[in-house]
Amino acid sequence: GRCLIASTLASASPEDQKKMLGEWLFPLIQALQPTLASKITGMLLEMDNSELLLLLESPESLCYKVDEAVAVLEACQAQQGKLAKCII
């Protein structure tokens, strides 16, 4: 339950907190986006821990955030592609 998650997080260092949240979020994200799960989890871990806890509790919110992250990632990769062409 949430109490267990919150108390486990509270006893961990900030870096461990992000790692734990990542370990919990990763399989959920992997189910939605198998190929991009590592990058999307990395993106979402930049959010506040309190927001990440909400995502863990709400599959709909997580699904929405993952869609949002994929859009940002694709836009970013498109930009990087253009940059690479410029360099070449």
Binding site: P14, E15, K18, K19, G22, E23, F26, P27, S38, K39, I40, T41, G42, M43, L45, E46, L73, C76, Q80, L83
Partner: peptide, 26 residues
């Protein structure tokens, strides 16, 4: 316009220590 965005986002892999915070100045 930010050159550091090339390596963004940091990837998370289960079982591997998370390094993402090192990219963020407190």
């Amino acid at each position: 316009s930010n050159g550091s965005s090339i390596n963004w986002p940091p990837e998370f892999h289960p079982g591997v220590p998370w390094k993402g915070l090192q990219n963020i100045d407190p």
